[in-house]
């Protein structure tokens, strides 16, 4: 770069300084400007309810009667000794355990399949998202019918193999299994699409090179696709954890009647069902808020464990 004359160079130095200043400002301020809309809107519409709920949980607060006095941590003390809470937490974790792993694995394989085909991909994509857009009422009736004791299609099929009818809602494990089927039916396609989008960012030449090197499809999937997609896989693991811990819709529609009781003996009452039951069905808003807050803390802890575990795996590989 050579200067043609002195004067223009001076002028240029001036604009350079302005530009540098602007650039420095840009580097410093832009990140905050980019994240500001999210945090501002969340601050108003997310944080306020959260803090309000925390406040309510420290009171004897009935939905109808309103605030009936500050009671400190009494709701939390009761909660720790409440068998219904521990039962609900156990159910939530149990359903989580049997639902999430097959779901994410199936989604990964389906996405890989979709990514490899050309013909009919659009149609397959639509078909996969259909469970997510099917009306909850239709889903509720279909699955209730499938898992009925007397008239259920699943029991009819089992009968063909000489297996006695199962009271799906009656047992803990059987109800968990039925709900896990509903959850996976509804959310596998959803995760598949997220994975499919992420696969678009895996450079294709990696595959071509591997294919030429003679790596099998399965090997390429485990050695290229999965490692390249680690951030997205971590993302789906965390959102699935959060979503599953707040599981409500599927067990609620699986239940009969509107009590949110999760079966005759709470076999499948999840924590969110308990929250709804306490706060809205029985009007104990203070206690419902306390359960809600404890659930929030449990989720945060589980999320951190997720991050730590995946961090370790990442470090090890």
């Amino acid at each position: 770069m050579t200067a043609a004359s002195r004067a223009p160079q001076d002028a240029r130095r001036g604009t350079d300084r302005a530009a540098r200043l602007r650039a420095a400002l840009d580097t410093k301020a832009a990140p905050y400007a980019f994240i500001a809309p999210f945090f501002l809107l969340f601050g108003v519409f997310g944080l306020f309810p959260l803090l309000y709920t925390a406040w309510v949980s420290l009171h004897d607060w009935s939905l109808i009667g309103g605030n009936e006095g500050f009671i400190g941590l009494e709701n939390y003390r009761v909660l720790l000794g409440d068998a219904k809470f521990w039962n609900a937490l156990l159910n939530t974790l149990g359903i989580f355990a049997i639902a999430v792993v097959p779901q994410l694995l199936a989604a990964l394989l389906l996405a890989d399949g979709l990514n490899r085909i050309v013909r009919g991909r659009g149609l397959f994509q639509i078909a996969l998202i259909i469970p997510y857009v099917t009306s909850i009422a239709a889903m509720a009736i279909v699955f209730s019918t499938l898992f009925g004791t007397e008239y259920g299609m699943v029991n009819q099929v089992l009968g063909v193999f000489g297996i006695d009818p199962v009271n799906w809602r009656g047992g803990r494990l059987s109800s968990w299994a039925a709900i896990a089927v509903m959850v996976d039916w509804r959310w596998t396609g959803y995760n598949t699409l997220i994975y499919l989008a992420a696969m678009q960012a895996v450079p294709k030449d990696l595959y071509e090179a591997a294919a030429l090197d003679g790596a099998s499809a399965l090997r390429r999937f485990w050695r290229i696709t999965v490692p390249m997609m680690r951030p997205t896989i971590l993302f789906t693991v965390i959102i699935s954890t959060i979503g599953q811990m707040q599981l409500f819709t599927e067990p609620a529609v699986f239940d009969t009647g509107g009590a949110m009781a999760g079966g005759t003996q709470g076999q499948y009452q999840t924590v969110m069902m308990l929250v709804f039951q306490e706060a809205f069905r029985y009007g104990d808003y203070g206690y419902g808020s306390a359960v809600s807050w404890v659930l929030f803390l449990v989720i945060v802890v589980l999320g951190l464990i997720n991050v730590l575990l995946t961090g370790r795996i990442k470090g090890a590989s």
Partner: peptide, 24 residues
């Protein structure tokens, strides 16, 4: 810190928050 905060916002259970949101 902001990244963690974003993840934590997802963990907020929405149901009991309906009342304060209605007030708002």
């Amino acid at each position: 810190g902001f990244t963690v905060a974003v993840v934590v916002t997802m963990a907020v259970p929405v149901q009991v928050g309906i009342i304060p949101l209605l007030v708002l």
